[in-house]
Design a protein around this nucleic acid. Structure first.
Lengths: 209, 209
DNA sequence: GACGATATTCTTACGGCGTAAGAGACGTCA
DNA sequence: TGACGTCTCTTACGCCGTAAGAATATCGTC
């Protein structure tokens, strides 16, 4: 058995590729090993268990979301929201994982601290600023989840089929909204933008400068 | 083998109890059978497969979220948001499931249609009103997920431990916010209320009456 | 009560999962 | 060469969802 030249990083990269391709439910240690030309148990030399693989994937995604908090706070907070959404949409299979996991990695905490400090300089209280950051982050996650999230082991529900079969007599407003573009990518984008604006507008510091 | 007097409803009720008690990861057909004094395969007489059990649980939770859209729209939309949050917090183990599943059950669609019609009467366009409903719902789900969601098979991460061990020199604003109550139930509630207000304030119809 | 039909439950089995334990092969350096 | 640390494999256990079909319970009819 010649050596495969693996590493934790290569294992995680292969896992991400596998998950992007076939979804989280398809990620098993045996398949991941096969992907790397190795038996399942070999992976345990690089990774303590499967949970560590999942945690690694989440950290990879989260660590790519960074925004420099300079300039008007609304602008970089908006950029922060957009960055979260972009990263989550790039790896939708990770969405259910990221959504249920608080940001605890050192890098993530440092980024949060930087943003909170910037908000403080703009007249927000420490708690108030973090609430704003949290509100934006949770909104983005919720929105993106509804937009692209899939339950791991579940089949994709047939949204288009159900919606297309709606009785216009029974659901007139829904049918009209569907005709007007409800559920299209443009609809998601517009709803995201408008709600984000509302949040940023309504969550200004209580004692503005 | 005397008969157990089961039914789809009893199976779902037992599943909900098991999930509430031990989490989604603990839900297996064998355990669920044991819970009901029956072998695993017996359940397949009442339910086509495990996915149907999960879908049933979600429907149970979603169908309990109803609000009569009468009176000022901001008020009943707020009540809608509060109802979602209450139901999700009552069964946090279902959160990751509900979050990734669009509302397609007939009852859910009817409720959405009623709300959309009420918004239309208030000057919202059909699409605009549904975007508002969607924005509120996704925000609540995202918020509640961050507040109480747990990844199914994963261990609970030690939030308190990580946060308590923060270096005040390195993360001064975070530490101050923690001292001011970041992460407490009151903090979640306050953040929820403020962000919801901001959404409802900022998403008024474009052409108000 | 006996009997057949139907409704309900069980047993057995298969392939897949995460991973514990330990054996074996490789590469390097003395 | 031999020994040692690094890497990989084999085997095994107990879990999982569920397909197939045998066995039992209950009920309507005689």
């Amino acid at each position: 058995m010649p050596r495969a030249g693996l590493s934790r990083e290569k294992v995680l990269a292969a896992a991400l590729a596998l998950v992007d391709r076939e979804g989280i439910a398809a990620l098993s240690m045996r398949k991941l090993g096969a992907e790397l030309g190795v038996e399942a148990m070999t992976l345990y030399y690089y990774v303590p268990n499967k949970d560590a693989v999942l945690d690694g994937l989440i950290d990879m995604a989260v660590s790519r979301i960074t925004v420099e908090p300079v300039g008007p706070w609304r602008e970089w907070l908006r950029a922060f929201a957009v960055a979260i959404r972009r990263e989550l949409l790039a790896h939708p299979a990770l969405l259910p994982l990221v959504a249920t996991r608080p940001v605890l990695a050192p890098g993530g905490l440092a980024a949060v601290e930087r943003m909170a400090a910037a908000l403080r300089a703009e007249g927000f209280g420490a708690l108030e600023g973090l609430q704003l950051i949290n509100a934006v982050a949770t909104f983005v996650v919720g929105h993106t989840l509804a937009e692209a999230g899939r339950t791991p082991g579940h089949d994709e529900p047939d949204v288009a089929g159900v919606m297309g079969g709606l009785d216009p007599g029974e659901h007139p407003v829904l049918v009209e909204a569907l005709r007007a573009g409800l559920g299209t990518p443009e609809d998601h984008q517009e709803r995201f933008d408008r709600a984000l604006d509302a949040l940023l507008q309504g969550l200004a510091p209580r004692t503005p400068l």
